[in-house]
Design a protein around this nucleic acid. Structure first.
Lengths: 104, 104
DNA sequence: TGACAGTATCAGTACATGCTGATGTCAGTC
DNA sequence: GACTGACATCAGCATGTACTGATACTGTCA
């Protein structure tokens, strides 16, 4: 039982625009131009966020001529889902057993 | 298919200390004193973070004399796990089908 | 080769937020 | 009722970071 969620990964995903990007990339592999069109954000801003996602290993890039495709890495998200599921499971067991530390 | 992760909840959880608190509360219902002892953080700081968790609906409080027990709400975490699992599933399908939007 | 489009990088700014000390409040105990 | 311990609230400070305009790099096409 690992029982610890990756804080750094969470911080990366805990931004509205980045989460939006991740949701879009989950459905379709896109390049920056598409993301600019979809989100309405400036290119510079998006490029910064994409760099954060790249550095965190959340997305892969695939150059295609002068375009750059961004692809979401499913395993990273799946691992996170698993960590939260495990945490929830532990919490449920704690609630069911009414496990509670006594106050001194 | 909801397909959207709750950004506000993520922001709440994307803090190292708060995530630590959540992990501790998953195993055991505790009061502030215990959390101070476990984390080594100042009482004021912890109280602030606990307020954030309370406001976000991540934890429930149960007053017990002059103590206050904090209990993690498993359903909130489970819902988050479900959202990420769904996202991962979508991403896997996208990768398997190599779904990719053409560059104009 | 020059022009342009897609993308990345850089420096600066503004805002959010995590931490702190001081203080207030409430419950239990002498 | 005075005191102590558990907890919350407040104001101030400091740091991180999201956003921006300017600019550089790279590949494509005329």
């Amino acid at each position: 039982m690992l029982m610890s969620v990756d804080t750094d990964l969470l911080r990366v995903l805990a931004d509205p625009l980045r989460l939006r990007i991740v949701a879009l990339l989950a459905r379709e592999t896109l390049c920056t131009t598409h993301l600019v069109a979809e989100t309405g954000a400036r290119q510079t801003n998006l490029s910064n966020h994409l760099k954060v996602l790249r550095d965190a290993g959340v997305v892969d890039t695939e150059p295609c001529g002068r375009f750059t495709y961004y692809r979401l890495k499913p395993d990273v998200i799946a691992a996170l889902a698993g960590q939260f599921a495990e945490l929830a499971e532990t919490a449920r067991a704690t609630a069911a057993a009414d496990r509670k530390r006594a106050c001194s």
